[in-house]
C-alpha cells in the first residue's frame, strides 16, 4: 500500500465534511452559549474550541465549570472523555507516517471522531491520500470554531438567566449521544447502571462535579470490563 499526500486529497477531505456540518452546528452553539453563561470571554471560548477541539469534553467541562475555573478537574475530565481518541491512532498511523513535519503533528492534534470515520471509509475504498485526513479535520474545525463563537455571541445578546430551560440543551447533547453508542441491553445495561448509580451517590459528597462524572464512568466501565473478560457470561 502506497500512501500519497496531495492537495487534491486535502480538498476531497474537506468536501467530505460538508454533509456533517448540520449535525455539528447545534453542539457548537450549545458550547458557545454555555461558555458565555459560565463567564468565559469570546477569546477564551474560541481558544478552547481551537486547541481542545473535542465537543463532548468541552460540553462536559463547561457544564461542571465553577466560579473559579477548575484547572485540574477540567483536565481530568478532558482526559477521560477523550481516551477514545487513543483508539483511533493505530488505524490512522500509516497516513500520519506519510506526512512530514508540522502536517503530521497537526493531524495528530486534530484526531477527532468524524474525520477518523471518514478516513476509514476512504481507506476501505482503496484511496490512501494522507492529506484527506487533514482536509477532513479542517472541514470540521472551521465550522466548529464559527459555531461556538456564534453561540457565545448569541448568549451575550440574549443573556439567559441561570437555570433557564434552554440550558437543558447541554445535558441533552450528551443524552442524545447515548443512542449511537448503545450496543444492546446485554452489553450496556450493567455498566451504565453502575455508572449512573455511582455518579448519583458520589455527586453530593464531592465539591467538584466533573470528578463525580469520571468516578462514575470508571466504576461502570470497570464492572463492564470485568464481566466481559473474567466473570459472568461463562
Amino acid at each position: 500500500m502506497t500512501v500519497i499526500a496531495t492537495r487534491e486529497g486535502f480538498w476531497r477531505g474537506m468536501r467530505a465534511c460538508v454533509p456533517l456540518i448540520i449535525g455539528l452546528l447545534p453542539f457548537g452553539l450549545v458550547v458557545g452559549v454555555v461558555a458565555q453563561s459560565k463567564g468565559l470571554s469570546m477569546f477564551e471560548t474560541a481558544l478552547m474550541s481551537a486547541i481542545v477541539f473535542a465537543g463532548t469534553a468541552q460540553i462536559l467541562a463547561l457544564e461542571t465549570w465553577q466560579e473559579a475555573a477548575p484547572v485540574l478537574p477540567a483536565t481530568v475530565a478532558a482526559l477521560a472523555v477523550n481516551l477514545r481518541f487513543a483508539l483511533m491512532g493505530p488505524s490512522l498511523a500509516p497516513w500520519f507516517d506519510a506526512m512530514r513535519g508540522w502536517r503530521r503533528w497537526l493531524s495528530v492534534a486534530a484526531v477527532v471522531d468524524h474525520a477518523w470515520a471518514l478516513s476509514l471509509a476512504e481507506m476501505r475504498n482503496g484511496r490512501h491520500d494522507a492529506m484527506f485526513y487533514l482536509g477532513a479535520a479542517f472541514g470540521l474545525w472551521a465550522p466548529w470554531m464559527v459555531s461556538t463563537v456564534i453561540g457565545h455571541a448569541m448568549g451575550s445578546v440574549v443573556a439567559l438567566p441561570p437555570g433557564h430551560p434552554l440550558f437543558f440543551a447541554a445535558p441533552a447533547c450528551l443524552i442524545a449521544l447515548l443512542v449511537p453508542v448503545w450496543r444492546g441491553a446485554g452489553i450496556d445495561i450493567l455498566p451504565w447502571a453502575v455508572a449512573a448509580a455511582t455518579s448519583l451517590l458520589v455527586t453530593p459528597m464531592l465539591p467538584i462535579p466533573a470528578l463525580a462524572v469520571v468516578i462514575g464512568a470508571v466504576s461502570g466501565s470497570l464492572v463492564g470490563a470485568w464481566r466481559d473478560t473474567a466473570g459472568g457470561r461463562a
Partner: peptide, 14 residues
C-alpha cells in the same frame, strides 16, 4: 464501555 458510561455518569445527576 467508556463513552457510554461517561455520558450516563454525566446525565444522571443533571
Amino acid at each position: 464501555h467508556l463513552p457510554g458510561t461517561l455520558f450516563v455518569a454525566f446525565a444522571a445527576p443533571a
